[in-house]
Structure formats: C-alpha cells, structure tokens
Amino acid sequence: MRSLRYFVNNTDRILGYAGEHAVLILMAVVMAVLVWVSVGILIRNNRRMARGVLGIASLIMSVPSVALYGILVTIPGLGLSRQSAVLALVLYAMLPIIRNVYVALNGVDAAIMENARGMGMSARRILFRVQLPLATPVILAGVRVSVVMMVGIATLAVFIGERNLGVLIQQGLVRTRSDMIIVGAVLVSAFAIGIDYLFSKLEHLLVSPGIRGEAA
C-alpha cells in the first residue's frame, strides 16, 4: 500500500529513472549487437580464434558486476561516466551473443550448406541468405539473455553515477524505506520481463515461419 502511494506521488521522478534505464540499455544493446555479432561472424571459420575469444568472454562473464564497474571507473578517460556503464553492459553481452552466433552459424545442417554451395551460391551469399537467416533464432536468444541480464546489472550502475531505477533501491537501502525498495525491485523486474516478452514478438518479425519455434 505504502509502495503504491510512493509510486503515485513520485511518478515523474520514477518515469525519469525508467527513461534513463531504457536509454542506457538501448545504447548498450545496439553496440553489443553490432560489435559482437560482427566478431562472431569473423571468427566463424576459425576454431582456434573462436576458442580464444570465447575464453576471454567467459572470463569477463565471471567478473562480478560491481567489480567490473569498479575496474572500469579507475581507467583514465572512463571514470564515473556513462561510458563506463555502457562498456560494462556491452562486455557482459559478449559471451551470450558471440557464443550463440558462432554456434548457430556453424550449426547449419551440412546438407543445406553443401546444397547451397552445389547450386553455385557464393560464400557471401550463403552467409547472408542461408546461414544468418537460419541462425537468427539462436542469435536472438543470445541477445535476449544478455538484455534481460543488462536490465538487472544496470541497477548497480547507480553506484558509478547512473540515475536509473536502481536509485530507488539504493536510496531505499540508505534510508531504510521498504516502499522505495519494493517499487524499484518491482519496476526493474517488470522491465526485464517486458523486454523478454518483446523479444518473443521480435522473433515473429525476424524469423522465417519455416523455422520458427525451433530454437530459443
């Protein structure tokens, strides 16, 4: 009840935080997809390179988020800034996106690949017309996992100067205000679930009906 009252009384402020949250996530997602999908495509035919890149990615994945933020802010030029927050989120997306791109591109049925080659499609055309469309569900699943993760990790960016939904939880903690904590926790969770749902719709938009519902 108190939480609801807090929410109603502070709608503007909370919407502002939500907006900041969304902007941060959006920047990180766009960058992460552009960079990591390209890296995944580049390493698709090089098993040794893939193993190295995925090793680094899983190492980064196991660095706790508070620690990663901590390390990034001490780097000159980054500091307590949005760059640090975005970079941290992008780094966490490295493993799920690259791994799924790599696995999905290499997972295309050998018979399909052979037929594509046998019909005289160039390697480039095979990549864009066959491999990527077939890999889309799995790649989307990777992006989906990373974005949902980002929403949670972004709340911790309040400790390095971000003003997003995490502020509610952090301030609630400092002031022992359970209403603020609950509003913050519920909104962040709803945010994550909402994005998860959005991605299930995105699949319908991007994936051919011929393979829909097979992965993810």
């Binding site: 049925d109 018979a111 690949m113 037929n115 051919s208 393979i211």
Partner: peptide, 16 residues
Amino acid sequence: RQGIGYVIQKTGLFPH
C-alpha cells in the same frame, strides 16, 4: 555449379 543440377539424400532444402 549454377549450370549443374544437384540433388542429395537429405534434400538440403532451405528450411527458411
């Protein structure tokens, strides 16, 4: 290859 028809056992039809 464009001038040679190719059929294999597992058909290799593009599922998408």
